[in-house]
């Protein structure tokens, strides 16, 4: 199909052959360059590339050695001189490559250490951490009644511990109490400096089967007013301060003030 136009319009065939040459050049540039180190200075063109050439017979050069046609447009990269090869081997032998090190190995995550430092700053005695740690047996658990004293004045807020949101320095607790017959839920950050004290007023008899006691919001399960528990605890605390023994001396954490 292409034959007739080639005959009729020589320029068209020139265009066609130029396009072919360009393709060949691109091919050769990619194939010959890496192998030029090992092969002979004039790299022999592939026989495949010479096949389309004869019909144009315009940009071909007969190779005296191989008796093959090679294209005149192919870019034959000059053979790599020996010094450069030596140079490359020198580099590869003398300089030890660095051991394979991932980014994580090279740069340790600085955040855990930073957070630990911040926690130790905000909680030098470790009392706050201990009060809500998972391992401490005397720690406050969900379902206990806690009382939070604020440094900014105001009455201490007492309520049932509904959930503990453990998030490092952002660890917070959710208390549900009742003030003037209105249920109030408050989140407190345990490492907040304004939180002067967190006290366990009353412990739940059995540990709760849930991590978050959201069912306390339903009126059927609501604990309601905890003021009576707080009063009872205050009375027992006063007894403790006078030296008499009472049931309130069960745990070490109970009634502990945070520094």
């Amino acid at each position: 199909m292409n034959v007739a136009p080639v005959i009729r319009r020589p320029l068209a065939s020139l265009k066609n052959s130029l396009r072919k040459q360009r393709e060949i050049r691109r091919l050769l540039a990619t194939t010959t360059e890496p192998t030029s180190n090992t092969s002979a200075p004039p790299p022999p063109p592939a026989s495949r590339s010479t096949k389309p050439l004869p019909e144009s017979n315009f940009f071909t050069i007969p190779d005296p050695k191989t008796k093959q046609l090679r294209t005149a447009f192919a870019v034959y990269s000059p053979p790599r001189s020996q010094p450069t090869v030596a140079k490359t081997t020198f580099i590869s032998t003398t300089i030890n490559p660095p051991p394979p090190q991932t980014l994580v190995q090279a740069h340790h995550d600085p955040l855990p250490a930073l957070k630990q430092k911040q926690i130790s700053l905000l909680d030098p005695t470790g009392a706050r951490t201990a009060l809500f740690s998972r391992t401490n047996r005397d720690a406050a658990r969900v379902g206990d009644v806690l009382m939070v004293t604020h440094r900014r004045g105001g009455e201490p807020f007492a309520g049932v511990l509904m959930s503990i949101r453990r998030a490092g320095i952002d660890t917070a607790i959710l208390l549900r109490g009742r003030l003037t017959k209105v249920a109030v839920e408050m989140w407190f950050k345990i490492y907040n400096r304004n939180v002067a004290g967190i006290e366990v007023v009353h412990r739940r008899k059995k540990p709760a089967r849930r991590a978050r006691l959201t069912y306390l919001r339903k009126s059927k399960h609501d604990v309601g007013d905890v003021q009576s528990l707080v009063f009872a605890w205050k009375r027992s605390r006063n007894v403790l301060t006078t030296g008499a023994k009472s049931k309130g001396q069960r745990t070490g954490v109970k009634g502990q003030r945070l520094s």
Binding site: A172, A183, M186, W187
Partner: peptide, 14 residues
């Protein structure tokens, strides 16, 4: 819930 500046927040029943 009403968020407060010190990180605490409060929520009433009604």
């Amino acid at each position: 819930r009403v968020q407060r500046r010190d990180g605490s927040s409060i929520r009433f029943e009604d």
